Amino acid sequence: MAEFDFLQALEAARAKYDSIVKALDVERLSSEIAELQEEATRPDLWNDTEHAQKVTSALSNKQSLVKKLDVINSRLDDAQTLFELGQEEDDKGSMDEAEHVVDSLKNDLDELEIETLLDGEYDERSAVVTIRSGAGGVDAADFAQMLMRMYLRWSERHGYKVKVMDTSYAEEAGIKSATFQVDAPYAYGRLSVEGGTHRLVRISPFDNQGRRQTSFAAVEVVPLVEATDHIDIPDSDIRVDTYCSSGPGGQGVNTTYSAVRITHLPTNIVVTMQDERSQIQNRAAAMAVLQSRLLVLRHEEEARKKKELAGDIKASWGDQMRSYVLHPYQMVKDLRTGYETSQTQAVFDGDIDGFIDAGIRWRHEQRRIEEQEEG
């Protein structure tokens, strides 16, 4: 790499670093860390275990973010010093090493930049994901299970804690639906760009004539509700049904009426839960998911009203958002961002960060455009 190229790359890296520091508002971040540190030292903190875990998790994440910024800044300084020393001493090895450092920092800065774009109202929360099979019969049910595995593998890659809350198995193969919770900072902000209709094109393994089949599955992502969200659900607005759980779980689960189905009558939203052994636990979990969905519904209605007032009504961007083609060629393509890859097996094994990052950038740009139009 020529000297001009190195200096240009270093300048670009520093410019991106500065924009990230500005977007994260490091002074505010430091103030929040100080407040959390003070709260974390309170002797009665662990009287409320759930709150204590949130405080310590938030503190750890914010401290980690500041540390990342400090490390990147230090590596940028080191790279510049190393390159200048290499020039003075005509040491090509030092200059090559400096170039390698700047090149590797580009990926670190790109990842950090994504975090600055997760600035939505609920982005920093954990996520509740529901997958439902759509048109396509048994292939659709199988596809829904493939998607569930994909997201579970993605969570596993990142070390995120996952809890499967409900699974409804299809008769022949696959699943009719499944709901699971991903507990991690910004899980909702990242996974929310996965919401919408997914399409699979392949030679059906369930067709004895080997014909090509197109099938669909819907992915819904909502933020985990918190006590401060104030979603009131009167008892008169819900119908609660209980039934025996199905699928794996043992005799104790399958022979008692522990599974719960809650129907929200005004919106016809239905939530089922059968993961817990107790009907009381399943009802509590189902109510939490129902509150999450109503929270998102309220947020969407508020956004829709704003667009109506602005005289600009657009279709939802979530529908038909991605195609997975396994025949006659291998390709996974996001129809919103244009991001694509021919590594289909890697995608189904959970390698979807490229799609998620592209989706986050696309969503941020759409919000920016909308704000300009409203302004």
Rank of each mutant, 00 (worst) to 15 (best):
F6I: 06
E11V: 00
K22Y: 08
A23W: 13
V26D: 01
R28W: 00
S31P: 02
S31D: 03
A34E: 03
L36N: 11
L36I: 04
W46V: 00
K54L: 09
V55G: 06
L59C: 02
N61H: 12
L65S: 09
K68A: 05
K68F: 00
D70N: 14
D70K: 10
I72Y: 01
T81G: 14
L82K: 14
E84V: 15
G86E: 12
G86K: 15
G93N: 11
E99C: 07
E99M: 08
H100T: 06
S104V: 06
L117D: 12
G120Q: 10
R125G: 15
S126R: 11
A127F: 10
R132Q: 12
D139L: 12
M146T: 15
M148L: 15
R149E: 13
M150H: 10
R153F: 04
E156Q: 06
D166R: 13
A178R: 15
Q181C: 03
E194Y: 02
G196P: 01
P205G: 01
N208K: 13
N208C: 05
R211W: 02
R211N: 11
R212A: 05
Q213D: 06
T214L: 01
P223K: 08
P223E: 04
D229I: 03
D229E: 01
I233Y: 00
Y243F: 08
G250W: 06
G252E: 14
Y257E: 12
V260Q: 05
R261F: 01
I262L: 02
T267A: 06
V270W: 07
V270P: 12
T272Y: 08
Q274E: 08
I280A: 08
I280V: 10
N282Q: 04
A288L: 07
L290R: 08
L295Q: 05
V296N: 06
R304Q: 14
E308W: 08
G311F: 10
D312I: 03
I313L: 13
K314S: 10
G318P: 09
G318W: 00
V325G: 08
H327D: 04
P328E: 07
P328Q: 10
Q330F: 11
D334N: 01
T341C: 05
A346S: 08
I352A: 08
I352H: 14
D353E: 15
G354H: 03
F355G: 00
I360M: 01
Q366R: 07
R368Y: 00
